[in-house]
Design a binder for these strands. Structure first.
Lengths: 316, 316
DNA sequence: CTGAAAGCGCTTACAG
DNA sequence: CTGAAAGCGCTTACAG
């Protein structure tokens, strides 16, 4: 039982290959009767047109690329899962690659995708990535987390999350609200959130207390300790890892009553402090939005959109 | 600057298309001189043969599929990362799909991959998956976590991990060593580890104290509490989540001196208890082994191998 | 060592 | 409404 071709179907149906081809491509000009006959046969023998042969005639193999920075990032794999799901449903192949925050690797990956002739790409940007050539893939590019003029993007609104966190603490009578974040060199995760914090301090006439560090648990614990020593009576944690570290520090020191508020949430944080006031940055939604945006572009939309996904504040 | 074809190169080089084709395919019969000339031109103009056109002549588009159960599983995304990396280096396309522990979805995914004509697949098995048709993909199948006669597999040795955990506790004079695990319906993560525990109990003449539950943090905390109440003075945690839950419970209750030992380790666990004695199940290695196995199969090896990756016990 | 020709499985302009 | 023919960009058996 060898691979069936369009020719086999044509013979079985007693028509020409062209007609079979037209039916495959839903050409309405074929007589209804003929259509049915051919479709029945196709179904019966289980014929599938060769995607490769079609691709030779400019019916590109439907595929898109997606480049995450790290598969191990939970926010990224949430988004990734949605993106794969979306395109899978639209019968696209999805190629996944990891940039590992490495510009060169990112560019190699992009080049590869160009060569593979994917119809578009979605990728997670990072601070050092440099400018991306926006004309690649006929402009079918969607960036997540980072914005660039001329390229559609989807970002989280972490600034708003910081604001909510701040206001929540303020409303609970915290006086010395501190910020535990990552270095400003990381624009998205570091600088933007820090700036939002500073802005709140100014608005509420609060003296800033700031600790910036690397995105590791131990640093979170250390930062928490330092901030408390510096007089903080409430802390806004800028990332999930720092939140985790801070919470464990408080548990250890038996200071769980210190109000902690967080930008980003995950199961570990929920477990460490089930009642935490935190921002769910909605990465699943980010993925979905990015997928929809790219899909529209592929279908011909040429407008660029910068979508901002709003956080959902949670407290159980 | 339109797409270059083999014809363009042939004309530029003043040779026939066949000769260019031979050079592309590293046919040694082409005169060295001619080869060089053609290669130079190819490099100069940046010509890339069309994978699609090649695919029409039985030079399949090099691609493999991989089906994880959950992208959000850290063990799986560790392995996935390695697999993608490996095949990317060998210039393969990698299609990633999620089965979500759903048999039907798994089968749909496999069918899709058949249709996409990937050369082989790697997938993460789970207890309910049912028998997989081992003749698909010319037998180029590698299963992770689950074994099936006639299909190559890569598994972790979690039983050995349990043994090490047990012996470690025993060596530290624990008398009542308990086991906190997931239900036996989950063969790999539940039953096998539980059995290993029971076996150790018998070997060391220890009365088993067992708590089986779902794989959630809260259950881990609850289980830990229950086991301590039942008289346990040391606990072996069967999964990362349960370990996390147990450790937080101990932190909360100020009982961190209770020796906990764990099958599986991650950054959160490390942070909660930097000195924990735990088994790193080596999922990155699992991924690498699976990739190598599949690659060998694709290259023609037809022997089936059941690889067991040994855990590395760690304690800082 | 190399080229002309046939063929891979489709699509589509052309002619009817 | 439908078929014969040309063409997509390669590979490869054949002949030289």
């Amino acid at each position: 039982m060898k691979k069936l071709t369009i020719r086999d179907i044509a013979e079985l149906a007693g028509v020409g290959k062209s007609t079979v081809s037209r039916v495959i491509n839903n050409d309405p000009k074929v007589k209804a009767e003929t259509q049915k006959k051919i479709r029945d046969i196709i179904k019966e023998v289980g014929y599938k047109p060769s995607a490769v042969a079609r691709a030779m005639n400019n019916q590109p193999i439907k595929s898109i690329g997606i480049i995450v920075t790290r598969l191990s990032s939970s926010s990224e794999n949430q988004a990734l899962s949605e993106i794969i799901d979306f395109f899978h449903q639209h019968e696209y192949e999805v190629l996944v690659l990891e940039s590992r925050y490495d510009c060169e690797l990112l560019n190699t990956h992009i080049e590869l995708m160009v060569q593979k002739q994917v119809e578009g790409i979605i990728f997670f940007g990072f601070s050092e990535q440099g400018l991306i050539n926006k004309d690649l893939f006929n402009g079918n590019i969607v960036m997540i987390a980072v914005e660039q003029a001329g390229i559609s993007s989807v970002t989280t609104n972490s600034q708003l999350a910081v604001k909510h966190c701040f206001e929540h603490l303020k409303a609970n009578n915290a006086q010395h609200i501190a910020f535990l974040g990552v270095h400003e060199s990381d624009i998205q995760t570091g600088k933007l959130r820090l700036d939002a914090y500073k802005q709140q301090c100014q608005a509420h006439n609060v003296e800033p207390i700031i600790y910036l560090t690397d995105m590791e648990y131990l640093n979170g614990a250390m930062g928490c300790k330092t901030l408390l020593k510096a007089g903080a009576d409430a802390i806004i944690c800028g990332t999930e890892r720092l939140t985790g570290g801070a919470l464990v520090h408080l548990l250890r020191e038996d200071k769980i009553t210190v109000p902690i508020t967080a930008v980003g949430i995950n199961d570990y944080i929920r477990m460490l402090n089930p009642a935490i006031f935190a921002a769910d940055l909605q990465y699943a939604k980010v993925g979905r939005e990015a997928a929809i945006l790219l899909f529209q572009k592929i279908k011909g939309s040429n407008k660029n959109t910068d979508t901002v996904v709003e956080p959902i504040m949670i407290q159980n």
